[in-house]
Simulated assay, not measured.
Amino acid sequence: MAWAGGSAAFVVAGGAVAGYLGLVTGALSIDVGAGRRTRPLGPRTVDVEAPREVVFEVIAQPYLGRATRSEREKVSVLEKGSDMVLAAHRTPVAGGRLTATTVETVRFTRPERIDFRLVRGPVPAVSEVFELSEHGTTDTRVTYTGELATDLWALGQWWGGVVGPRWEATVAASLSAVKQEAERRTARD
């Protein structure tokens, strides 16, 4: 009988680990709609020394244009329409030992806005907006805002506290790369 209890504990522990890994990597999405909690993402503002159209093109390139090799490693366009795409985003997690994959719709309103909405990922819902406004005569201000939602009351709120800061850190890194590339393109022209 001790073996049966030990194997049951092993199965439960294995299931817990598999569930956690599934959540972290985005392979397991839980959307039960009960005990929904939301938390803001951002706001984050970045001033870019480049025209708004250039900044928009840099953000949109992996989705609407010809993606570079490094962009293709991070983003795969699954379906493309005239102003919206369905894209899979791959992000290293757990110190690079795992890869989280999210699937999101990305809607483009040229040249002032890009909207992201989560379809599949580590939380039930995320909506994000990148607003591009002219700042001065030649610069662009990018303002990022969003909302992340989790289910299951306090447990979901805890999970949102784990996922949210990592999500925002990924966005901050992306915005830094956008700033660098847009300014490089502007300096080149």
Score class of each variant (00 low, 15 high):
Ala125Lys: 06
Thr101Phe: 09
Pro122Ala: 13
Gly164Val: 05
Ala13Pro: 03
Met1Phe: 04
Arg113Val: 08
Pro111Asn: 10
Thr140His: 02
Glu131His: 04
Thr186Gly: 10
Trp3Ile: 15
Leu64Cys: 12
Thr45Gly: 08
Glu53Thr: 08
Asp151Pro: 07
Ala18Tyr: 05
Val126Cys: 06
Pro43Met: 02
Ala154Gly: 11
Ala149Pro: 04
Arg120Ser: 09
Gly96Asp: 06
Leu155Gly: 13
Val93Lys: 09
Ala4Val: 15
Ala172Phe: 01
Leu86Ile: 14
Arg69Ser: 11
Tyr63Met: 15
Glu128Pro: 07
Thr105Arg: 13
Ser133Val: 12
Arg117Cys: 08
Arg166Cys: 05
Val75Asn: 10
Arg107Met: 11
Val162Glu: 01
Ala94Pro: 03
Asp83Pro: 13
Asp31Arg: 09
Thr143Gln: 13
Glu128Thr: 13
Arg69Asn: 01
Leu118Cys: 01
Gly35Lys: 02
Arg110Ser: 10
Pro92Lys: 04
Ala60Phe: 02
Pro165Cys: 06
Thr145His: 01
Ile114Gln: 05
Ala177Leu: 07
Asp189Thr: 13
Ala187Cys: 04
Tyr20Cys: 14
Leu21Tyr: 09
Ala88Cys: 12
Val178Ala: 04
Trp3Leu: 15
Gly42Lys: 00
Ala125Pro: 00
Val162His: 13
Phe56Gly: 07
Ser174Lys: 14
Arg120Ala: 12
Ala2Val: 11
Phe116Ala: 00
Gly42Ser: 04
Gly33Arg: 13
Gly81Tyr: 07
Glu49Ala: 15
Arg90Gly: 05
Gly42Met: 02
Leu132Tyr: 02
Arg69Met: 07
Phe116Tyr: 12
Ile30Glu: 00
Ala67Val: 01
